[in-house]
Design a protein around this nucleic acid. Structure first.
Lengths: 126, 126
DNA sequence: CTTCATGGTATCGTTTAGGATACTATACCA
DNA sequence: TGGTATAGTATCCTAAACGATACCATGAAG
């Protein structure tokens, strides 16, 4: 087991990467607690398999908590763990940079084609 | 083109993901300017193909600059662009969280097996 | 005339991530 | 008796990422 910055960055990025994990995390940040079916509804293009898989990985990494109610039909609620909440500043930093980057890309493209520009909403946090 | 936090986070993560991009960026952060062969030497397991590919993507995204000297044998130097340097705080945030996460994983594992622990170096930046 | 170093490409194969679709258990409700 | 809702699994397939290996151009040094 190595202990380099690169190792740490990769370890952290493993948690965030996965086609749906950022969306799932942002959902749980803004909604606090969501049932499986609510998450699925809010993420229109995800398949059930992927949603389950990504939630399981996040659960394994102690980022999300899975609460099962023994009722029929089943009720399962997902939420961030306290530890998962420590990711919020990281996501905020990424989000802020991402916003700048979208602008940056737009400027680069404007030098070539004529894609219309969007007025920036300048929202640095969720 | 959407304009949601999730979109921005994903756009930003696209730049950081790729098996070798974090390592490459950290190399360029700590060494300022590196030749192709130096990068390859410092990243022992990368193949030439992957190194070229990832550098090209970073170049396309205006994160790294590629300076070609017309000499033989060829000399090509890579460095961060000014824009690329704006990624440094983001990588620092990810690195800091990653360090906590490595500790967190170690604590979880200690409850099960007997893997020896490393004294933390508590280095929050590069 | 050959060898060497550098910074690449090209081609092919494997591995992994992700997607489509079908199936399941359970209790309630009509 | 049959349909419904929820939260999943199981199976199969495709596409993309990644890796191994071989090849190439150039000019200087020997």
């Amino acid at each position: 087991m190595e202990e380099t910055p690169s190792c740490r960055v990769e370890t952290a990025l493993e948690i965030l990467t996965g086609k749906w994990k950022p969306s799932i995390l942002l959902e749980l940040i803004t909604h606090d607690t969501l049932r499986f079916s609510e998450l699925k509804r809010n993420l229109p293009n995800i398949t059930q398999k992927m949603l389950t898989a990504q939630l399981r990985e996040l659960e394994l990494n102690d980022i999300v908590h899975r609460e099962i109610y023994q009722v029929v039909p089943p009720r399962v609620e997902y939420s961030l763990t306290d530890y998962g909440k420590t990711l919020i500043p990281v996501l905020n930093a990424i989000n802020a940079w991402g916003e700048k980057h979208v602008e940056h890309l737009a400027q680069k493209d404007m030098l070539q084609d004529t894609t219309p520009t969007l007025a920036s909403s300048t929202s640095d946090s969720f």
